[in-house]
Simulated assay, not measured.
Amino acid sequence: MEDFLDACQAAVKGNEPKSLAAKMGVPHVGLLQRANPDNEAHHLTVEHLFGILLHTGDMRPLITLAGEFGFDLVAKTAPKPQELTKSMISVSKEFADLTIAVHEALKDGHVCQFDKSTIRREIGHIRETLDVMDESVKAA
């Protein structure tokens, strides 16, 4: 917990606290007091933390919090959008591949580990093409 609170304070102090406080709509001194882990009278709220992350882009508090629970925080990169028709064709193809994989797995009435792996891989491909489709719709 101490590392997380230190990371919150570092994010505030390292990102122009007066400007940050104005963007968050809180008093400058109040933000510094709340971010100070040694000040037991004031604490950051979830809304304050969200404002710090949003307005600074400084993810140290979030990275530290995730780390304290055994997770790694990895930035997600958006896929490159495509022309909508091409994107729709890709999604349709992946759904067809999934359909074929499921039919093949069910042929003998037993779904083995290899079949499960193949089906899960096809599901992953569908997710990827749906992410591209989502970006394509946003860009249209």
Rank of each mutant, 00 (worst) to 15 (best):
E2H: 03
D6E: 13
C8G: 01
Q9Y: 00
A10I: 03
V12I: 04
V12H: 00
E16M: 06
E16W: 05
E16K: 13
K18Q: 12
L20I: 03
L20T: 01
P27G: 06
V29T: 15
L31P: 00
L31I: 02
Q33S: 04
Q33N: 10
Q33I: 01
Q33C: 02
N36Y: 01
H42T: 02
H43V: 00
T45H: 04
H48W: 02
F50N: 09
F50H: 11
G51E: 01
L54Q: 11
H55F: 10
T56H: 03
P61L: 02
T64R: 00
A66S: 12
A66G: 08
G67C: 06
G67N: 05
E68G: 09
F71H: 13
D72K: 14
L73Q: 09
V74D: 12
A75E: 15
T77K: 14
T77W: 07
A78D: 15
K80M: 13
K80L: 08
P81H: 10
K86L: 09
S87L: 08
M88G: 07
S90F: 06
S92A: 12
S92N: 13
K93E: 15
K93L: 10
F95E: 02
D97Q: 13
L98E: 04
T99G: 11
I100R: 12
H103N: 15
A105F: 05
K107L: 13
D108I: 07
D108V: 05
H110P: 02
V111F: 07
V111A: 05
V111K: 07
C112T: 14
Q113D: 12
T118S: 12
R120A: 11
E122F: 06
E122P: 04
G124Q: 11
G124I: 12
H125T: 13
H125Y: 13
I126R: 01
L130K: 07
D131Y: 10
M133D: 07
D134C: 09
D134P: 04
E135M: 14
K138V: 08
K138R: 15
K138T: 09
A139P: 09
A140D: 12
A140V: 13
